[in-house]
Design a protein around this nucleic acid. Structure first.
Lengths: 214, 214, 214, 214
DNA sequence: AATGAATGAGATTTCATTCAT
DNA sequence: GATGAATGAAATCTCATTCAT
């Protein structure tokens, strides 16, 4: 992702002060840490303190909290979005690709503590964040869902929006609770998708009903 | 002069004043409404205003916010807990009973706006609420899970805690988002439970575990 | 028994806590002092400190700054407004009544330091204050102007609004500058009103005729 | 063009860098515009932005806000000061000269939005501005007043300081309020100066001093 | 000289909680 | 018991001013 920077051999574009750039990085790290520790609504002053800068500096770089949150997670979101087509290309079936990609999405949410919280917030202040997430990830998820539906592995009628939201919800609080394995529950959800007759119905097929554990 | 504590020997029935009792009921209704409107963190002042009492009265009845939240939802939680055995008795199979009961649990969470939010909060102030919920509902859920596992309909290895938490998470925000149908996703999750090979397994094809993008 | 009941009638109206009432008075005094010292924009925190209360108390009593300013000066404004008809009744001529009333208005502005400043401010936050002043004093001033015009002592075409604003302006800063006598300048302004032919015109009297601007 | 300012590049002597000089002019224009738009307390950043320079540049040229304000209005103040003797030379009487000059002074204040505000401010930061104004204009006004007093057209006892301050005050807010005509009120003030009996006196009628309301 | 990033004091406002009445 | 006034700790955001580049 940082590879983009190498293209400019000269300093043509409006040169940024070195300390400003350092600060931005420091701020993003500090904000990420603060989000983990205090949630997405961590006081600006705390973030500034963690970064060792004044509050004004935070506001200069990120005028709104949403700007900050988006910036904190942009790299990961981008990587996740770009992984979608790769999953499709490499997996044995579209359904496997979907499962794999959802797994990456779960990684994103679980390891970046505040993210799931940010997504669930209905504070209008985070609308921009919601939009960004959906803009970037909905198309990817849609493509995978469509492919899996096209191959007949899953039903066709689950919207990508709903799936993303559900997976996002399942990941809330996962990082702080050792008794809760979000990845496993997401796995159940994805497995549920594969039910031919819909979630509430039992398929009348031999071989799917009789296996009894132990 | 009046009401020295020691004069109690007459053993008057420790009855609460009628108005105090009325207030408690009024307060619970008001709090429930406030939670729906503004979420679980609704200002105490709002709740008092809705109830037509002073804030002091709220604090007298419910010293902490958690006390209030627990009280608000106690009835519903009790009813849900008690429905567990009934489901088991009436359903055709243990798995069906589980599905039915989970459905009731979803009702509880989705219709009582603030509840899912309260459960997801990791504010230590809500620990009491968490405890109450788990104390009351975990055994019920466990029983249902065990029964379904015993009948061979599902795998045995999902903890009731994890299931409740997952379903609770899936219900977050369901009231306010018409594009998100929590009930449907919970259905997928429960359906996933029934998968023969376990949630993490996809149809037996060689190499499918190894698919990695890039 | 009967003795107990007598106090009841006295406490009918919505009882205010004694300290609240005391606080309100203290706050008004503190605000008045702060306005004198730091102008109408004195920090709320300063006002609270002067009054020996917390900032929250200020906001409880006076939600907006304009509320506070209006309250601080309400007594004086009311008294001034009510003096208008009295002036008219007691003075020898309508013009004398006008002059007398304007004098009272100047008293109001000059002795209450911040007032003129508040009136001149074009911060929209003070619109309510402007409105209050105009609502209350414009009609009074109009009546006096009309009477003086009716008696032929002054021209009829000066709007009360303009006169009040002009006098208000002349009073700005008067309390802090010993070299500036607002009362005197207002006197000149009122004297100028009496010119039969309008301010720029010279009455046909010997020795006053030849003035032409530049 | 600013060609007046010696554009000859032949000039060797320790001249200021051309861009610095250009900046100064640009800054003055920008500041004037900002004062009109936002008043004399316009944020430094706004001024810098209007001028297309950094805030540091503003501070380099004008270390204090007062320096900037003085510089912005210096040309006009000089012109006004120099117009005094001219008025006296051209008018038919000293009083007419005074009236004419005051008119020019009003022009200065009314058309240069922020100026009256700057003059009225009692912020010590503007002391330099006050001094500059008085230094430059008081002597001029004094001369005109003295002449008019000498010719018997007005009383001798109004200090130039008081007159300037009064006129200045009358001009406050005149630009933004269509219902308020500062020029007209100043006209009344000047007319009042001509009253034979002095400003405080009303037409000789018995008992008129004693009128009191109530 | 010019730039604009950084600083941090200060202003406003909200609420949970206490406590006088 | 009930009331709601008082409190003051946050939290946000704005700018004047300094200073690294």
């Amino acid at each position: 992702m940082e590879g983009d920077e190498v293209t400019d051999m000269a300093e043509r574009p409006p040169r940024r002060r070195a300390d400003a750039q350092r600060n931005e990085k420091t701020l993003l790290d500090a904000a990420a840490a603060a989000f983990v520790a205090s949630g997405i609504e961590a006081p600006v002053r705390d973030i500034a303190a963690r970064a060792g800068v004044g509050v004004g500096t935070v506001y200069r770089h990120f005028p709104t909290r949403a700007d900050l949150v988006v910036a904190v997670y942009r790299h990961q979101v981008e990587a996740c979005a770009e992984a979608g087509p790769a999953c499709l290309a490499n997996a044995t079936t579209p359904y496997a690709a979907l499962a794999r990609w959802i797994d990456l999405f779960v990684d994103l949410l679980v390891t970046k503590h505040g993210l799931a919280a940010a997504l669930r917030s209905d504070d209008t202040q985070f609308d921009a964040l919601h939009s960004y997430f959906l803009d970037r990830l909905l198309p990817v998820c849609s493509q995978l869902l469509d492919a899996a539906a096209g191959s007949g592995e899953i039903q066709a009628d689950l919207a990508a929006y709903e799936l993303l939201r559900g997976v996002g919800n399942l990941c809330i609080g996962a990082e702080s609770d050792p008794r809760y394995d979000a990845r496993r529950l997401v796995g159940l959800l994805i497995a549920g998708l594969r039910q031919p007759g819909g979630p509430a119905e039992v398929p009348a097929e031999p071989g799917q009903q009789a296996d009894k554990p132990g």
